[in-house]
C-alpha cells in the first residue's frame, strides 16, 4: 500500500473504483430485488429508474446550478414516482387480468423502450432549447462533487449511502409491523391478505422505494461516470447479475451480489489488462454475464440459498 501525503494510506485507483462501483450496483440490485419480490417479474425497465434519477440531478445542476447532493431527495422522488407509475399503470392492471409472466416481462421491456424515447427527447430538448451542450453524453460530474483526502466525495458517500440504506431496510423489515407485513406479503400474498394485511400498500411502497433507490444510485453514478439517455440498458445486465447472484429473493443477498459484481468488473478488468493485455478492457461487460452464467450453473438459488454455516463446519470438522 502506498503512503500518501499527511501519512494517509492511499489505495490504488482501481480499488477505489471497485468500491464505488460495488456500492452503486449493490443499490441498483437491491432496488431490482425489491420490485422482483413483490411483483415476481424481472423489471426490464429498471435502467429507466436509474436514468430518471441521473437526469434529474444533471438537469438541476446544468440549468438551476443546484448541486446533485442537494437535489438528491428530489431525484429520489422522481425515481419513486416513475416506478410507481410503471407499477400502477402497467403491471398492476396486467397482473389483475392474470397475464402470464412472459407478458409482464415484455411489458416492462416496452416501458423501458418508452423511457429510452422519453430521455432521448428530454436530452435533445436540453441540448437544443436549454443549450446544455453535453446533455446527450456527459462525463463524470467531478466539478459538482467535493473532494476529501485527494479522492472524490462519491467514494465516501456511495458506500455510506449503501450502508445506511441497508441498515434502515434491515430495521424496517425486522423491527416494525410494516416490515413484518411486507415479509408476509412476499412469502404468501393470499395468506397475508387473509390475516388483514393490505398487500396493495406494501406493493405500492416497495415500488416507490425501489424507484427512489435506483434514482439515488443514478445520481451517484453521474458523479463517477457521467451518463447518456441509454445508460440504463448498459447497466441493466450488471443489476440482473447482482440480483441473481444474491438469489433474486433476498435484499441482503442483492447487497452482496451487487458489491461482488460491481467490484469484480473493475478488479478483474484492471488485473486482466495488466497481466493479459490491454485488449481485455472493452470486454468488461462480459463479467456480469459470466457471473450470471456461473451462478445459474453452480448455485441457481444464489448465495443466500447456500447453507454457509454447514459448509464451513464441514470444512473445519472432518
Amino acid at each position: 500500500m502506498l503512503i500518501g501525503c499527511h501519512g494517509i494510506p492511499v489505495l490504488p485507483p482501481y480499488i477505489i473504483s471497485a468500491i464505488v462501483y460495488g456500492s452503486l450496483f449493490a443499490l441498483m440490485s437491491v432496488s431490482l430485488t425489491l420490485t422482483y419480490i413483490t411483483t415476481k417479474v424481472p423489471n426490464f425497465a429498471q435502467g429507466a429508474l436509474v436514468t430518471a434519477g441521473l437526469y434529474t440531478g444533471f438537469a438541476l445542476l446544468s440549468i438551476n446550478k443546484i448541486n446533485p447532493y442537494e437535489s438528491l431527495p428530489l431525484s429520489f422522488l422522481v425515481g419513486g414516482v416513475v416506478a410507481l407509475g410503471i407499477y400502477l399503470v402497467v403491471l398492476r392492471p396486467l397482473s389483475r387480468r392474470g397475464a402470464p409472466v412472459i407478458s409482464l416481462m415484455i411489458a416492462t421491456l416496452a416501458v423501458d423502450i418508452i423511457f429510452v424515447g422519453v430521455f432521448g427527447i428530454y436530452s435533445d430538448y436540453l441540448y437544443q432549447v436549454k443549450k446544455v451542450y453535453d446533455a446527450k453524453l456527459f462525463f463524470a460530474l467531478t466539478g459538482a462533487d467535493f473532494s476529501l483526502f485527494g479522492v472524490n466525495g462519491v467514494v465516501y458517500t456511495a458506500p455510506i449511502a449503501l450502508a445506511l440504506i441497508t441498515a434502515s431496510l434491515y430495521l424496517v423489515l425486522t423491527r416494525t409491523r410494516f416490515g413484518l407485513a411486507m415479509r408476509a406479503t412476499v412469502e404468501n400474498p393470499n395468506l397475508a391478505k387473509v390475516v388483514g394485511v393490505n398487500t396493495e400498500v406494501i406493493y405500492v411502497t416497495s415500488w416507490f422505494v425501489a424507484g427512489g433507490l435506483a434514482a439515488i444510485a443514478g445520481v451517484f453514478y453521474s458523479f463517477w461516470q457521467g451518463g447518456e439517455p441509454d445508460i440504463g440498458s448498459v447497466l441493466l445486465i450488471s443489476m440482473f447479475a447482482g440480483s441473481i447472484l444474491g438469489g433474486l429473493k433476498s435484499i441482503y443477498g442483492a447487497v452482496i451480489g451487487g458489491l461482488v459484481v460491481g467490484s469484480s468488473e473493475i478488479v478483474v478488468t484492471t488485473l486482466g489488462a495488466q497481466y493479459i493485455g490491454p485488449w481485455v478492457t472493452p470486454y468488461e461487460p462480459g463479467i456480469p454475464l459470466l457471473v450470471m452464467v456461473i451462478t445459474l450453473l453452480v448455485i441457481p438459488g444464489g448465495i443466500t440459498s447456500v447453507n454457509w454455516r454447514r459448509l464451513l463446519s464441514r470444512g473445519n470438522g472432518s
Partner: peptide, 25 residues
C-alpha cells in the same frame, strides 16, 4: 420539433405494445 423524431417511434411503439397487452392480449 426540437428533438429527433426517432424517439417518437420508441414512444409510439412501446406504448402500442402496452396498450395491446392491456386491451387485446
Amino acid at each position: 420539433l426540437p428533438f429527433d423524431v426517432t424517439w417518437l417511434e420508441y414512444l409510439l411503439f412501446g406504448s402500442l405494445l402496452v396498450v395491446v397487452l392491456l386491451v387485446r392480449p
